[in-house]
Simulated assay, not measured.
Amino acid sequence: MLHRHFIIYKPFGMLSQFASNDSKQQSKKFLGMLGDFPEETMAIGRLDEKSEGLLLLTTDGKMSDFINSKKVEKEYYAQLDGDITTEAIEQLKTGVKIGLNGKKYQTKPCPVVKLTEEPALPARSKKIRDARHGPTSWVSITLKEGKFRQVRKMTSAVGFPTLRLVRIRVGNIALNPMQVGDVIEVKEFMV
């Protein structure tokens, strides 16, 4: 079977799935709105509705399993509420306790860097509060694990809740220079 692979820039406010039988989700936006994908296409990992950025789609389950494994890095840019401290960055780097399925989970050590300037990202469809409401800061967080809402939970655990979350890289595949809603079909993923 010849598999198909897609790289997309998932917009804010869209679910990382193609359809839902849940009556509460019928008014939601789904990935199928971005293009005509084969019926067996699946998202590799997920980005929650309020997150945006790089999402890979494939018809190859083995490729999906490999990319979701702890062998492939996923990098995120997170805009945080407040000017994150050096101490908070060190906590994120070494791992923090987050809630996961009603239990405490210790995140694995990971690279975290405070960005010196705001990244050049497309404007988000829903405006984020501005500087009148206090300072914000940006960090890059690179994970090899992907627990439910992990980045958001990590930054909240150190006192700097996430205001905007954008996945910018999966392995060697980068978001730039894509725009929100772009879909690119590729022959294979080079992660």
Rank of each mutant, 00 (worst) to 15 (best):
F18M: 03
A19W: 03
N21T: 05
D22G: 02
D22L: 01
K24F: 11
K29F: 03
F30N: 03
L31K: 05
L31V: 11
G32N: 13
D36T: 07
P38E: 04
E40M: 08
T41V: 07
M42C: 12
L47P: 02
L47W: 01
D48M: 02
S51T: 04
E52I: 00
E52V: 00
G53C: 01
G53V: 00
L54T: 05
L55C: 04
L56E: 07
G61A: 12
S64E: 13
S64F: 03
D65M: 08
F66R: 14
I67T: 04
N68Y: 04
N68R: 13
K70H: 13
K70A: 07
K71I: 00
K74T: 05
K74F: 03
Y76K: 06
L80C: 09
D81Q: 13
I84W: 03
T85I: 04
T85C: 10
A88T: 11
I89F: 07
I89M: 04
L92P: 12
L92G: 09
K93E: 14
K93A: 12
G95I: 02
L100P: 08
N101D: 15
N101F: 14
G102L: 05
G102S: 09
K103F: 13
Q106E: 15
K108Y: 08
P109L: 04
C110H: 13
V113F: 09
E118W: 00
P119C: 01
A120V: 06
A120S: 11
P122I: 00
P122L: 01
R124M: 03
R124H: 07
K126Y: 09
I128K: 09
R129L: 05
D130I: 01
D130A: 02
R132D: 10
H133F: 13
P135R: 10
P135E: 11
W138N: 03
V139M: 02
I141P: 05
K144W: 02
K144D: 06
E145Q: 15
K147I: 01
F148H: 15
F148Q: 14
R152I: 00
M154A: 10
M154S: 11
T155V: 13
S156V: 08
S156M: 08
S156L: 14
A157R: 14
G159H: 10
P161T: 12
